[in-house]
């Protein structure tokens, strides 16, 4: 049996924080799926509805942050509870950014640059699929409290970067050959970048989950390990 807090109200607050995070996660997940669908089909109405969801995401970010602050003030959380609340605050920031990226993809759909469907959408779909894998793993890691899954999410981000590079090369080639108008090519490139950034945000969420569950701060681990030490004058 997992021990529960002696103060039941505190236990309920932490559960409520988890529930709110799950709700925000679902909303952002819907935005990503909608953005992908709207991009494939050119469904402007779906794109516009999805942009509206971003307001809810923004509101949830502010509300969850404030709720975390209230818990910290009232409970002076420590250890695993403190790490969970700190991770929650980081998660909502990253979820809000993912929502922004999804809304930007939808804005591109509503702008309807020529050639976006179906050719442009096909070009970025591999990036979007790879990004979805990272986001799925990160979110599942949160829901199932799985450190291994969080590490898998971080590893999977390499695939997103590869797909993004591949799509960029293909776009550049098509623009050079005159198969694709510059304006359209740049717009598609920008959409691909949005999905790549979503995966980066999901990676940050995975790092926050690892910190919450395992107390490991793995941010910039490789870069910090190889950075020169000593004071700079």
């Amino acid at each position: 049996m997992t021990p529960k807090h002696t103060v039941q109200a505190y236990q309920a607050e932490l559960q409520q924080l988890r529930d709110r995070l799950e709700a925000m996660t679902e909303l952002v997940y819907d935005m990503i799926a909608n953005a992908r669908e709207a991009l494939k089909t050119g469904d402007v109405e779906l794109a516009e509805q999805t942009v509206q969801l971003d307001h809810q995401v923004n509101q949830q970010e502010v509300e969850i942050d404030r709720f975390c602050l209230e818990i910290l003030v009232r409970r002076q959380s420590v250890a695993g509870d403190l790490r969970f609340i700190l991770a929650a605050m980081k998660m909502v920031t990253q979820l809000e950014r993912i929502g922004d990226q999804a809304a930007s993809v939808c804005h591109a759909v509503t702008d309807q640059p020529p050639g976006l469907q179906p050719a442009g959408a096909d070009l970025v779909d591999d990036v979007a699929q790879a990004a979805k894998t990272v986001i799925d793993k990160a979110i599942t890691a949160f829901l199932q409290e799985g450190v291994d899954l969080a590490f898998e999410a971080i590893d999977a981000d390499d695939d997103v970067n590869e797909e993004y590079d591949r799509a960029s090369r293909k776009l550049l080639s098509q623009m050079s050959d005159g198969e694709l108008a510059m304006e359209t090519g740049i717009s598609i490139q920008s959409i691909a970048k949005r999905f790549e950034r979503m995966a980066d945000c999901a990676t940050n969420i995975a790092e926050a989950i690892i910190f919450a569950l395992d107390a490991q701060d793995i941010r910039h681990r490789d870069k910090l390990a190889s950075a020169p030490t000593g004071n700079k004058v």
């Binding site: 049996m1 529960k4 420590v78 403190l82 107390a215």
Partner: peptide, 19 residues
């Protein structure tokens, strides 16, 4: 100890949990 205690008993006590 207050951010990442090594023992579960410590974690349970400082976070105010019972079994």
């Amino acid at each position: 100890l207050f951010s990442n205690p090594s023992k579960q008993e410590t974690e349970d006590y400082i976070t105010g949990k019972f079994g």
